[in-house]
Amino acid sequence: MRKIHVIGIGAGDPEQLTLQAVRALRDTDVFFVLDKGEAKADLTALRRDILTAHVPEGTYRVVRARDPERDRRAGGTAYAPAVGDWRGARADIYERLITEQLDADGTGAFLVWGDPSLYDSTLGILEELLDRGTVSFEYDVVPGISSVSSLMARHRTTLNRVGRPVQITTGRRLAEGYPRETDDVVVMLDAHQAFRRYVDQDVDIYWGAYLGTADEILVSGPLGEVAPRIERLRAEARERKGWIMDTYLLRRDPGCD
């Protein structure tokens, strides 16, 4: 039977791979890579650098396919259906790649940024394929160093405080209001910089973009003081590279509303 490795490759630094991830890389015959276009070509290059650093040349193939576009204008009740359509289109591509490019007893792999269990669709798509029953395979999951872990390490701080919970959410949710029961909030997928809503509160921010890469940018401090700098750096970086991936922790003074 075909076998698939879902390998967490960290936030971008080839040295952040675990030994388990390296073993899985070297066990792979075919790597499946979704190409996000010229604007994000350096993401494909980072994957290539990881393979060059850890896998002997000539022992594997890389098969690329174009990643389907998602309707990012969809909001409100249209958001979930838009994501569902995008995942379905990805599932069609995965099915074709596995069926056409992987031998019946071969081993393939998907390289997942950060950790496959955190804000990634790969595991859900593979389960959808198995439910379809059109292609058979078994798969395993290799955890990776997430952008959240990398962010905390680079800022030399902890994810939570003693006896206090932490919540991981999206910019879309943060824009609806600061979580009432949690003062430490990690925010991912924030295209609209929802932190600006809280600049007048007693909140610190630990922000990072392009974590684990040569383009890494870090800013921390009281939100009201550093928010303009983050906005400027973010806009400049996006203009320069054509894309941005950033994550941040908001840390509010306990007891604030």
Rank of each mutant, 00 (worst) to 15 (best):
P165F: 14
A91Q: 02
V203W: 06
G255Y: 09
G208C: 01
V219Q: 02
A78H: 02
L25A: 07
L130M: 13
D29E: 10
L233E: 04
R23I: 09
L218R: 01
P81Y: 03
Y178F: 15
Y210N: 01
E176V: 02
Q101G: 07
L151T: 08
L174Y: 06
W86S: 08
L25Y: 14
S136T: 14
A89I: 09
V166L: 10
A45D: 09
V187A: 06
K36A: 02
Q20F: 15
C256V: 15
P165R: 04
T157S: 03
E127C: 10
R252K: 13
E231V: 14
G212E: 04
L19S: 11
V83Y: 06
S147E: 05
Y119Q: 01
E236S: 07
A80C: 03
G10L: 13
R240Q: 11
G8Y: 09
F195C: 08
E57T: 12
R252I: 06
D257C: 12
R197V: 08
W86A: 01
V226H: 06
E225N: 04
E95P: 04
H5A: 03
S146W: 07
P143R: 06
G255W: 01
S117T: 15
L211F: 13
T18W: 03
V142T: 12
L118M: 12
G242K: 04
R180K: 04
V142W: 00
R251V: 07
R70L: 03
R240L: 15
G84T: 14
R232Y: 08
P179T: 08
E95R: 11
R48H: 12
I9Q: 11
W243C: 09
T122K: 08
Q16A: 11
Q20M: 13
I168M: 13
M152H: 04
I145K: 06
T44D: 07
Y139F: 15
R73M: 10
V166N: 00
D184V: 09
I9Y: 07
P179E: 09
D13Y: 11
Q167M: 14
R161S: 15
R172V: 14
L189N: 00
F110R: 01
E57L: 14
G10H: 09
A39E: 06
S220H: 00
A78F: 05
P254T: 11
A53G: 10
V30D: 03
G88F: 07
